[in-house]
Write a protein that binds this DNA or RNA. Structure first.
Length: 215
DNA sequence: CTCTTGATCTTCT
DNA sequence: GAAGATCAAGAGC
């Protein structure tokens, strides 16, 4: 059988739209999260998020704040949203549509009830574990949505309320400043006009394209 | 490619 | 009873 010259080598190349495997920045301290959610959210783009060593580069997030009706915290604390009302630098994990888990990073200060929803990663660490948990091979489908990445990283309510600055979490800051795409948030009907979605411009690992040309 | 639907937990009406 | 910070599978074009 003649070899297949070009196709097999192409399959080893990085997926187009991926960033170069950058050096990990410093672990983000609690202080990083103790600022306006609108400062923290775009600065998380390009950071690396690992849970028990499995994860990747954050390429899409959304900001939520108690003062705005799309936020779970809008109507005050409940058993589910209690963590959002606590101090910054902790994980708020909630059940979505009764089936999926989604993870937020709590920001600002106790009582602010502001958080950043992590919506998509470019997988870089523990690909085999992610593929096993997701039952998929396609790298671009592993973490391209909040429910998907929680599944790939084995995030459940067991992580709700845990500090982001200690195991099993490892959140490393970025080492350079990427171009950021912005847009309206996905899948909400209230306060749908607010442009509080942030992405890595040109990334093909986001859950949905950004309409302002960012893919 | 787009559109529709089922899965079924937490909260609100 | 209904809606929701979702996803995957199936139908149709």
């Amino acid at each position: 059988m003649p070899p297949r010259p070009s196709v097999s080598s192409h399959s080893k190349l990085a997926v187009p739209g991926s960033v170069a495997p950058a050096k990990l920045g410093r672990p983000l301290p609690q202080k990083f999260f103790a600022r306006s959610v609108h400062e923290v959210a775009p600065e998380l783009i390009g950071a690396t998020m690992l849970v028990n060593g499995v994860g990747g580069v954050i390429v899409e997030v959304e900001a939520y704040h108690q003062t705005e009706p799309a936020a779970h915290s809008y109507r005050g604390p409940t058993p589910r949203t209690m963590v959002m009302f606590g101090p910054p630098g902790f994980a708020y994990v909630y059940r979505s549509y009764g089936i999926h888990w989604c993870i937020n990073f709590v920001c600002e200060k106790e009582g602010s009830a502001a958080a950043v929803l992590i919506r998509a990663l470019q997988p870089t660490h523990g690909l085999a574990a992610m593929r096993r948990r997701r039952g998929l091979e396609d790298e671009r489908a592993l973490c391209s949505g909040p429910g998907k990445l929680a599944s790939a990283l084995a995030i459940t309510n067991a992580q709700n309320g845990l500090a982001l600055t200690a195991p099993p979490f490892a959140i490393h800051g970025r080492t350079s400043t990427p171009e950021i795409a912005t847009g309206v948030r996905i899948g909400i009907t209230k306060a749908a006009e607010l442009p509080w979605r942030y992405g890595l411009k040109g990334s093909r690992f986001v859950s949905k394209p950004f309409t302002n040309g960012a893919a």
